[in-house]
Amino acid sequence: MLNNKNKVSIVDVAKHAGVGVGTVSRAINDNGSISLETKQKIMQSINELGYVPNRIAQSLRSQQYKNILFFVNMSIPTFPKIINGIYSQLENEGYMLSLCNIGANNILDKIKLYTSHHHFDGIILASPHEDDEELNEFLRSLNVPVVTFELVIPGLATGISVDYHTAVKHATNYLFSLNHKNIALLCSSTDIPSNRAIIEGFKDSFATNNLDLDENLIVRINSSSNDFNTSELINLMPKIRSKKVSAILCMHRTFLPGLLQVMKDSQISYPEDVSLVAIEDYELTSLLNPSITVIKRPLLQMGKKIAEMVLHFIQKPELYGNSVPTVISTEFIVRESCKVLNEKE
Results as ranks from 00 to 15, higher is better:
303 G>T: 06
279 I>V: 15
305 K>H: 11
284 L>R: 10
301 Q>W: 00
297 R>P: 02
280 E>W: 00
283 E>K: 06
302 M>P: 00
251 M>T: 14
307 A>P: 00
294 V>E: 06
255 F>H: 10
300 L>S: 08
265 D>V: 03
277 V>R: 07
277 V>E: 01
251 M>H: 05
307 A>E: 02
256 L>Q: 09
285 T>S: 15
274 V>S: 08
272 E>N: 15
274 V>C: 10
294 V>I: 03
279 I>T: 14
291 S>P: 01
285 T>L: 11
291 S>E: 04
254 T>W: 00
259 L>T: 14
258 G>T: 14
295 I>M: 12
303 G>E: 03
253 R>Q: 13
285 T>F: 06
283 E>M: 14
263 M>Y: 11
261 Q>C: 05
264 K>G: 07
248 I>P: 00
258 G>K: 15
266 S>R: 11
307 A>T: 03
284 L>Q: 12
262 V>F: 02
270 Y>F: 15
252 H>P: 00
274 V>F: 00
259 L>H: 05
252 H>N: 15
302 M>W: 00
259 L>V: 14
277 V>S: 06
290 P>Q: 11
306 I>S: 04
250 C>L: 10
266 S>F: 08
274 V>I: 09
293 T>Q: 08
247 A>E: 04
245 V>K: 08
255 F>T: 09
291 S>H: 03
259 L>M: 11
248 I>E: 02
290 P>Y: 05
249 L>N: 13
299 L>E: 15
263 M>Q: 10
248 I>K: 01
278 A>R: 04
290 P>K: 13
306 I>L: 03
262 V>A: 08
264 K>N: 14
290 P>C: 11
